[in-house]
Amino acid sequence: MTKLLIWRHGNTDWNAARRVQGQSDVALNDLGRRQAAEAAPLLAALRPGRIWSSDLSRARDTAAALAAVTGLPVRTDARLRERHFGDWQGLHLTEIAERHPEAHARWRAGDPDPGCGVESLDVLGKRIGSALQEIAEAAAGETIVVATHGGAARQACGYLLGWDPSVLSTIGPMHNCHWAELHHEADRGWRLQAYNAGRLVSGAPAEAV
């Protein structure tokens, strides 16, 4: 059985300010580094054999906390990045609502392709889902930790599990430094074992941007 642990990165100053990160390379803050350090032993106890990460620093530095505990190298893949938020990257959520009210309303209502250069959910799911499928196939029978991003993690779960978008839209955002656990068996495919697992260090925002 292959186990896949899809791990959201730790907190950043943009998370705390509710500013859209997308694929902007924003570093962990002190809270985020502490969250990663506290989550690492919990994940290490699950005996991972490989660690993968998005190439953005907030994910790489989160993965590095686990690497420091396990001694495993961290491999990176740009396909594991967060959703690209187009014209919205770097903006506060209130600024988006003011500047792009119609697209913002569509996004809040769950439109998978709201415009303004925002990557569609279908493209996001195929991008990260195919990457995870390749990673899992190359390490069949192992436990793999993948440090990625909130929106990307949720969409990846939906892709691997074959969920209809209407089902995926009912799943809440993942907290910083929490993870989803999926198991794969040849005769049963992917199954979700846990979502938003971990230890809540603080009440930091969990908005997946």
Rank of each mutant, 00 (worst) to 15 (best):
G86M: 04
T76N: 03
I96F: 06
A65V: 06
F85C: 01
A67P: 01
S57K: 13
V74K: 01
D77Q: 10
V69R: 03
A68V: 02
T76S: 11
E82Y: 02
T94M: 15
A78F: 10
S53Y: 08
P73L: 03
V69L: 01
R83S: 09
G86I: 00
I51F: 04
A78R: 12
V69D: 02
E82G: 05
S53A: 14
T76R: 02
L91P: 08
L80H: 03
A78C: 11
S54K: 07
H100W: 14
D55N: 10
R60T: 07
D61R: 07
R79V: 13
H84D: 11
D55C: 06
T76I: 13
I51T: 08
L66N: 02
R75C: 13
S57R: 12
L56V: 07
Q89E: 12
R81H: 09
G71P: 01
A103Y: 09
P73V: 03
L66K: 00
G71A: 04
A97H: 11
A78L: 12
A64D: 08
A103R: 06
G86T: 02
G71F: 00
E95S: 15
L91F: 10
D87Q: 13
A64R: 06
D55G: 10
A64K: 02
E95M: 11
V74Y: 00
H84V: 07
D55W: 04
I51V: 10
R58E: 11
R75T: 14
P73W: 01
S57W: 11
R83G: 05
T70E: 01
R60N: 03
P101M: 12
A78V: 15
W88C: 00
E95Q: 15
D61W: 05
V69S: 01
Q89F: 00
A97D: 12
D87F: 07
R79C: 12
A97E: 13
A67C: 04
R99P: 15
V74N: 01
R75G: 11
D87N: 12
A65H: 04
L80F: 08
L66E: 05
P73Y: 05
S54H: 09
T76Y: 03
T76L: 06
G86S: 09
R83Y: 04
R81V: 06
T94P: 13
D55L: 09
T70Q: 00
G90A: 03
I96C: 04
R75M: 14
R81D: 03
P73N: 06
L91I: 08
V74G: 03
I51S: 01
R75D: 14
R79P: 14
A65T: 08
R58L: 13
T62W: 03
P101L: 12
T76H: 06
A64M: 08
A63N: 07
G90D: 04
I96A: 07
W52Y: 14
R99C: 15
G86C: 09
I51A: 01
L80C: 11
R60E: 10
I51W: 03
L80P: 02
S54L: 06
D61V: 09
E102C: 14
I51L: 07
S53L: 09
T76E: 13
A63S: 09
H92Y: 15
H92P: 10
P73S: 06
